[in-house]
């Protein structure tokens, strides 16, 4: 029964391949978002406009005067009557049907994209990175075991799959510009993917309130030309990752946002000492990562 929707959706996609948005997540999102925005605005303007128009048209004139004289209007609801409705059912049914058709067809249209997003056809060919959230930063584990903190490096133009989890509390890993997002749940893995078409740096953030450092729980996503990425990746090893910056370097880095978060947590009455210390280390690592990235 549950699978019914999927089965129903499949032929739909086959039939309308051109209509269903595909491509990078950003492209998909933008297409759908703009269609919704335009249609939504249109419907909103029409409905609210109609509502205001009627309200103006059928306003009681000032001449109608007080509430008392309004009462004398014939045929209106009267005190003590048993509640009843007015007619107009056909019009109501019509507008309801119309709205239902618009909404359902919009959603069905996006459902095709959902199927595409959920199981991109060439899933096997892409790189998979494990993302581990912790209070308050992100750790990335590459297929070769290389582990970095605070910076995720990916090749441009390639699909990157993320397996997201958490080491402590519920986080959410999201890269706004690349439209990738997944919950980071302790003990569970969630999957998402993205394609960065342009090289450059993007910001990843935590999208689920996770404690005092939540506002600053960021990571940098560096999209590199495939060749550059391959060169970098070939040099990484599971043991030491790419970070060779000494802790002293990290400590002297000018107050990055992560530093701020750490200071704040340490000041918070609730934070236990070991956790604050752990955070400090993480923050230092993150800063080190960042300084390297620049």
């Amino acid at each position: 029964m549950i699978g019914g929707g999927t089965l129903l959706g499949a032929p739909l996609i086959a039939a309308q391949t051109d209509i269903i948005p595909r491509g990078s997540r950003s492209a998909v999102f933008n297409q759908i978002y703009w269609v919704f925005l335009v249609l939504g605005t249109l419907v909103g303007v029409i409905v609210i406009g109609y509502m205001l128009y009627n309200a103006y048209k059928y306003r009681a004139g000032r001449a109608a005067g007080s509430e008392r004289s309004a009462e004398s209007g014939e045929g209106g609801p009267a005190l003590g009557e048993l509640p009843q409705g007015s007619g107009g059912g056909r019009k109501l049914a019509l507008s309801f049907t119309l709205s239902a058709v618009i909404v359902i067809s919009l959603i069905l249209w996006t459902y095709g994209t959902l199927l595409y997003v959920e199981s991109p056809p060439d899933a096997e060919e892409s790189m998979e990175v494990e993302v581990i959230g912790f209070q308050f930063g992100w750790e990335f584990v590459y297929p070769n075991g290389n582990t970095t903190t605070g910076t995720l490096r990916v090749p441009t133009g390639e699909r990157v799959r993320l397996r997201v989890t958490s080491r402590d509390v519920f986080h959410n890993f999201g890269i706004a510009e690349l439209e990738a997002k997944a919950d980071a749940i302790p003990g569970q893995y969630t999957d998402t993917w993205f394609i960065a078409n342009e090289s450059g740096t993007y910001q990843a953030q935590c999208y689920e309130l996770c404690g005092a450092g939540h506002s600053y729980m960021n990571a940098t996503v560096v999209a590199m030309e495939p060749a550059a990425f391959e060169r970098w990746y070939a040099n990484t090893t599971p043991a030491n990752g790419t970070t060779n910056a000494s802790p002293e370097d990290a400590a002297t880095t000018t107050a990055s946002t992560n530093h701020g978060a750490k200071a704040d947590v340490a000041a918070a009455p609730g934070a236990t000492a070991p956790r604050a210390a752990a955070l400090e280390t993480n923050a230092a690592e993150a800063s080190a990562e960042r300084s390297l990235a620049r």
């Binding site: 939504g40 909404v103 919009l106 959603i107 689920e208």
Partner: peptide
């Protein structure tokens, strides 16, 4: 307005990005 913007969230693909 709240209802129309809610339909956006009903589209799972959009919801993925609106989350949080």
């Amino acid at each position: 307005i709240g209802g129309i913007t809610g339909v956006f969230l009903g589209a799972v693909v959009l919801d993925y990005e609106f989350r949080g």
